[in-house]
Design a protein around this nucleic acid. Structure first.
Lengths: 233, 233
DNA sequence: CTCCCGATGATTGTCAGACAATCTGACAAC
DNA sequence: GTTGTCAGATTGTCTGACAATCATCGGGAG
């Protein structure tokens, strides 16, 4: 169920850290399409013609169709009957919805901070420091974006529920799509390390309510910023 | 973006309320498989052989494969590489996870009761009365189950977020699978109308905290009951 | 007698090609 | 200006096929 997990349940052997890329063609195609969408190579609304794409990727049409079905299920593309699949075009309404969904999921995680596993709490700290290091190192826009979203995902991880995390991943994927569309040309990521560091400090000090309030502001601000830039297309 | 919405943006015409069943073969196949799973016709762990199923349903193998991919994406079936897909077998861990996910989503909805739209609140009341009427009428096990879960979905609807509702639907689907497996033989549904009515009364009176506590007990009890029966298979 | 090993059949993953149904756009007819 | 019709393009679906992989089972080595 979890992609990164080792599937063998051998107790402990000398062959740890060895895992073979057992991905199917469909998975690779889907991954390549996701990458293209997130990197902004495909503008929103672009129709994904089956024959052309299949030929371009060197796979058969049924295989490509399965991959497209995955993308549609993830909300990264939309299918209109008899009209094919095209890259999803985020509208203000869906951005608002994604934002409220994020708020619910991440708030639930933060409220569980005192009862969360030490492992989950450590994951939050690690995600934050990784982000801050990326900022300090002047990492690329793509990497900063990803590490920033990883922080928010780690907050959902505080619930300890794999299903909630996977839901959050799906929602965040839609957000990445919207961000990619907005920043297709001018890709500048503001430094938000301070805000997140403050968030973690509040959690560590036990003031969960204040942290939740801060998160609410943070997400609401992001929502407004995205919608604003989305509407002057 | 919303399924029930008319896709034409004509201002207002005499042709409202007209909609044609535009379902594809893949959708129909997936729906039939879901039904079979929920009715308990397919035991958990049953391998879904592609050729046999395709022939039995009168569709081609690629079409069936797309439908199976949908089921897998919904968590109702699992795919093992080169070994095909089989009906998912709920284990205690996943039931616990489903329960915590439900708790998060439904609690979020209830906490939003005061700010929810009147439409959403009315949906909760309607779902409850529909369930109570079904109980009074001595409806079938299947119908009672569905109406009971509809109440819980309506609680998530209080968030006003379509995405959260669809997440809840996915989670509830897994729960229906587990219930179908448990009650494959003895299908008795306890009358839980009283508990839910009390829940709604608490909400209407404005005591959201008490309602949330009550919901927590309710879900935790259900979780324990399911796991208990699951473990004496 | 037990255990490892290789052949055999079944099943999946993937491909190529084909056809009908439907959509799009343009053009002719009323 | 609306309607009818047609050609091209695209999707939805089917058929048939092939290699890769997996499960089973019988035989030979120890």
């Amino acid at each position: 169920m979890h992609p990164g997990e080792t599937s063998t349940d051998a107790p402990a052997g000398p062959f740890d850290g060895l895992s073979l890329e057992h991905s199917s063609t469909v998975d690779r195609v889907a991954e390549e399409l996701r990458r293209a969408v997130f990197e902004g190579e495909l503008e929103s609304g672009t129709p994904l013609r089956e024959v052309a794409l299949a030929e371009s990727l060197g796979v058969s049409r049924p295989t490509l169709r399965e991959a497209l079905a995955l993308l549609v299920a993830e909300g990264l593309a939309t299918r209109e009957p008899n009209r094919g699949v095209s890259v999803a075009s985020p509208d203000p309404e869906s951005v608002r919805d994604v934002s409220t969904a994020r708020t619910v999921l991440e708030t639930a995680g933060m409220r569980n901070w005192p009862h969360a596993s030490e492992e989950a709490r450590e994951a939050v700290r690690h995600a934050l420091t990784a982000y801050e290091q990326a900022v300090a190192a002047g990492a690329s826009y793509q990497e900063l974006n990803q590490r920033h979203l990883a922080i928010h995902l780690s907050l959902v991880g505080l619930t300890g529920s794999p299903r909630l995390v996977s839901m959050a991943e799906s929602v965040v994927a839609e957000l990445r799509l919207a961000l990619a569309q907005i920043d297709r040309v001018r890709r500048n990521a503001r430094d938000q390390a301070g805000s997140h560091h403050h968030l973690l400090d509040l959690l560590e000090s036990g003031d969960v309510d204040a942290a939740v309030a801060e998160l609410g502001d943070h997400l609401h601000g992001a929502e407004d910023a995205i919608i604003e830039r989305l509407e002057l297309d």
